[in-house]
Design a protein around this nucleic acid. Sequence first.
DNA 1: CTGAAAGCGCTTACAG
DNA 2: CTGAAAGCGCTTACAG
Lengths: 330, 330
Amino acid sequence: MTTINDIAKLAGVSRTTVSRFLNNSGYVGQEAGERIAQVINETGYMPSQSAQTLRTKKTGVIGIILPKISTETSSRVVSGINKVMKREGMQILLTDTELDPDKEIEYLRLLKSRQADGIILLATNIGERLQQEIEAFPIPVVALGQNIPGVPSLTYADYDASSDIMQLLIGKGHRKIGFIGVSETDPAVGKLRQSAYTDAMRRHNLEVKESWMAEGDFSIDSGYEAMKWIITGNRSDPPDAVFCVTDRMATGAMEYLKEQGFSIPGDVAVAGIGDAVMSRYITPSLTTVNYYNEEAGEAVGEMLLETMAGIKYSKKMMHKYRLIKRDSVW
Amino acid sequence: MTTINDIAKLAGVSRTTVSRFLNNSGYVGQEAGERIAQVINETGYMPSQSAQTLRTKKTGVIGIILPKISTETSSRVVSGINKVMKREGMQILLTDTELDPDKEIEYLRLLKSRQADGIILLATNIGERLQQEIEAFPIPVVALGQNIPGVPSLTYADYDASSDIMQLLIGKGHRKIGFIGVSETDPAVGKLRQSAYTDAMRRHNLEVKESWMAEGDFSIDSGYEAMKWIITGNRSDPPDAVFCVTDRMATGAMEYLKEQGFSIPGDVAVAGIGDAVMSRYITPSLTTVNYYNEEAGEAVGEMLLETMAGIKYSKKMMHKYRLIKRDSVW
DNA sequence: CTGAAAGCGCTTACAG
DNA sequence: CTGAAAGCGCTTACAG
């Protein structure tokens, strides 16, 4: 590999001058500059990132910690983050916890060792240890999707969006509303969305039956199983609507309902959250809420940039969302 | 940041010894080792990657060049690659060309400057310049999805899979088969799949009507428009089946057909390629072929590892696939 | 306008 | 079993 020394020699100047030329810092004589430019061109020289990093402490890389790489939400978010990082000439280092909370800490450390300039964390839980780790962390961290104390966080409007869904369902006359959620260890998706459900039911004096509530694990299959469990357990008194905290689980739930001959939304209305592409094309199309994940990615990217620039206040923001009424709810 | 010098001082040894301890190279006294281990633990010390890289020329990072980040195929592939790279303790640097061929070269150079240990290229085209760039490239490159001359490549069985689809359609008695493809600048998806279509038609002495063939751009909408164009242009003699080279375009095509009151597969059978999750849940469910993208990602990851290990033969492999018969074809 | 020198944090012969 | 020293490829005061 050609180094800055080779360039200097070939151009007949010192490497100091080459460096100045490269970084556009300080004066470089006209003639010298031209010779350097030429040599660089001929050799296809590229400065060594690791040497630069060692000196400047800047890698030009930010790390993203994702719960799961191959998910529609993740890829939309990454796409948004990528958009702003590209603008800044920064690269992205992807990291995937596969939903294992321990890995969140592990990757935080890894990214530290790789000297990421900043980190975007899409946490699924926010335990003690995680918070401690971040507190003493030498690298700017921002969170997306979960509110982490002391960390600039961009969250989705989980409670509000869920309330809107419930409002819609109740407004349409549904009284017996089931719920398919996920584990409450996930504050945003698990707790918040469920609270919105129970709060809405109570606010309208509707019965919250334990047997109408089931828990899935984000997968389509788990939605199918959850729906099955609810229906099987309430043969005589099935719900007439079901709120699923995720489009994928809603898809599974619909699959079961259709198999069993329930008409949607005639017998049972169904609503989800997330606006997966699929939701528009299944039959009936799914009523859901769009979280503008890509824009959220951009926004959290900007937050990170600001934080990296030294703006230290702990910013909390909630991202916009939009209720999308389709055919699975009348 | 704590450095190896801090650790050495705190443990009362030289940094040479700490380095040996860290890398498990050469002898380290029992007692010294224990002290070092302790100090490292207390400080949470992590060696600086850039310093290590500068010395060893290994970054532990591989680059992936993707046509588009937020796509089901991409995320499956990345997930597979990630699986094997994680095993090797390597990180992934993601790069997204947004379907711009110039960026393929740009990112190749970028990854060179970042000293990626290897590169996996998911090209969409394979122009002159790209090949030249790779030829003189100092870093191992492998390709997925396209066969690049002189480069170890793992390709999908585009021709065979498409032929199978056509065989199925023809076997079911379809004679007037339409085609929705993509630009032929894409050798794999554009050319190969189309060749399989025209070859199959000719082999069975079926007419290949220009007006039954349309071109989309991978998007659902473009499938919709392509189908519309075909139907509109053939009012008196519409095809009774259509082969779409992509599930997303097939989804759009079905959407249009359903809107227009065609029954699927009664009036028009539809088939795609890719096995998007969605394909299983739309109505009717879509006949398609599964390319095992995640496994392909693993396989190409292994190919890269081998290439990095110095195995230089230009390996060409074709990945397995599976025809999935569902309800959009009788 | 330009260069010599120090130093970033490691690893690796080499010598003991 | 351990350490001193050189060097990886840069950038950045500093001096001229």
